Amino acid sequence: MIQVLIADDQTLMRDGLKTILELEPDIAVTGLAADGEEACAICDTRKPDVVLMDIRMPVMDGVAATAAIKKRHPSIAVLVLTTFDDDESIVQALKNGAIGYLLKDIEADRLIQTVRDAAQGQFTWPAMLAAKLTKHLCANVPALSGRLAALTGRERDVANLLAGGYTNRRIAQMLYLSEGTVKNHVSSIYSKLGIYDRTAAALALRRALDK
Rank of each mutant, 00 (worst) to 15 (best):
L81A: 06
C40K: 02
A28N: 10
G36K: 01
P25L: 05
K95S: 10
E37L: 14
I112V: 14
A108N: 12
K47N: 14
T66G: 08
T30S: 15
M60S: 03
P74W: 10
A98W: 01
A41D: 15
V50D: 06
T114F: 04
A67V: 02
T45V: 14
D109N: 10
L23H: 10
A67F: 08
R116K: 14
C43Q: 02
E88M: 11
A33T: 03
D49Q: 14
D44G: 15
T19A: 15
D105F: 06
C43Y: 09
E24Q: 15
D109L: 14
L102C: 04
E38S: 09
K71I: 13
D35V: 11
D54Y: 03
I55D: 05
I90R: 12
S89C: 09
I69E: 05
C40N: 01
P74L: 08
L17F: 06
P25A: 14
G100M: 09
L17D: 02
D49H: 13
V59S: 09
G62R: 06
L94G: 01
L94C: 10
D86Y: 07
A33S: 08
E22K: 03
I20W: 00
L21G: 03
A41Y: 13
R116Y: 09
D26N: 09
M53Y: 10
V29Q: 02
D54W: 00
A65R: 03
Q113D: 15
D54H: 02
E88C: 07
M57K: 00
I55C: 12
V59Q: 14
V50N: 01
I55P: 10
E107V: 11
R116I: 12
E88H: 12
V51P: 04
V115S: 08
F84L: 12
L102K: 05
D54G: 01
D109H: 12
V80S: 03
M53P: 01
Q113T: 13
K95R: 14
D86A: 03
E37Y: 11
D86M: 07
V51Q: 10
K18L: 03
K95M: 02
T45G: 15
T45Q: 15
A34Y: 07
A93R: 00
V63H: 02
D61E: 02
L111N: 05
I106N: 11
P48S: 01
V91Y: 07
F84R: 00
R56D: 12
A67L: 13
T82V: 00
Q92R: 15
A28H: 14
A39N: 03
I42R: 11
I99P: 10
D86P: 11
A77T: 07
V78S: 12
T30C: 15
G97N: 01
C43N: 13
V59Y: 05
D109Y: 13
D109R: 14
T19W: 13
A93E: 02
E88S: 14
A93C: 13
P48D: 07
P25G: 07
G31W: 02
G36S: 12
G62A: 00
V78E: 00
V63F: 08
A93M: 12
D87E: 13
L52R: 00
F84M: 11
P58F: 06
D87H: 10
L111P: 05
I27W: 06
S89G: 13
A64V: 13
N96T: 00
V29D: 02
D54P: 04
A68W: 05
V78Q: 08
A33W: 04
G62F: 04
I112L: 03
R110W: 11
D44P: 11
D61I: 07
I42G: 10
N96M: 05
I112G: 01
P58E: 00
D87Q: 13
